[in-house]
Amino acid sequence: MNGIPGAALRYRIMAWITGVVLATAFTWMVLLIVMWMVDGNALTDFFSSNEQKPTAYGVLWIVHGWAYFLYLIAGVDLAFRLRYSIVRTVLILLAGTVPFMSFVAERYVHKDLARRALPSSVS
């Protein structure tokens, strides 16, 4: 199947967007939780209460959700083209939900591409 460089570029872009949005939202969440617990509240109440969370924070998670959906499409497309195994594909796809892991997955995929001596569209 052709179109590997294009698919790799699409995957790389989505991995970075998803990764940056997720890292921002995750860091923000950690900060909010620290402030929440410094105020003497229980950790479990943080997730059941929406009052102390800024609107932009919630929006960021929604943005991550849809960026991740595009990441899935780009990731599945690339995995099909590279004929990756199911396990490898699922791990790459799940990396978009773990903070900072999509960067790792993206590095892995592009190293793999370089090893196969297939031209990656971005150096």
């Binding site: 929406n50 929006v59 959700g65 849809w66 959906f69 899935l72 499409i73």
Partner: peptide
Amino acid sequence: VAFPFQNFFYAFQWWVFALF
């Protein structure tokens, strides 16, 4: 009252994932 958009979109999104 503030509408919980985050949960609403997540609900919608899971169903989109099912189609995916």
